[in-house]
Amino acid sequence: MNFEEGKYMKILDRILEKINRIEKEEDVFYKYVSIGLVLLIIVQYYPIVFYFFELIEFDSVGKYGIVASLKIMFLTFLAAMPSVVLILLGLRLIEKTDSRYRYGIGTVFILSGLIGAFFNGLLGCLEQTSWWDI
């Protein structure tokens, strides 16, 4: 039994050691930052999706179409995804990496995620309202 426990502990230790080594590697910071930058660009320019949607759907479906309305709801929901991932990535960047500027860059990611989620959500809701009411 002791032998078994020792064996498992050794395997667990090795796994934990590997995880810690990966997390503390210098390049993980840059990997997180590069993923965060991609998400940041998506979050910042997401309103273009609404604009193109309006151009494409305006004539074909009609202003009060339920299908168009549902599509806008889906697009609004989709807008939240990169924002949430960006917030989580910012938190992970602060927690797991060891760069001096991790707090600054992590805070920018979290703020961008929050602002993006709010404004893209607001824009989606306004689009939805305008399609129903005007």
Binding site: F29, V33, L37, L40, S99, R100, G104, I105, V108, L111
Partner: peptide, 20 residues
């Protein structure tokens, strides 16, 4: 060195954030 690289990266991220 890592510190200088990170400093420039930080400036770039802040600049990109405020630009839009």
């Amino acid at each position: 060195d890592k510190d200088r690289f990170d400093k420039y990266l930080f400036i770039a991220v802040i600049l990109g954030f405020i630009s839009l």
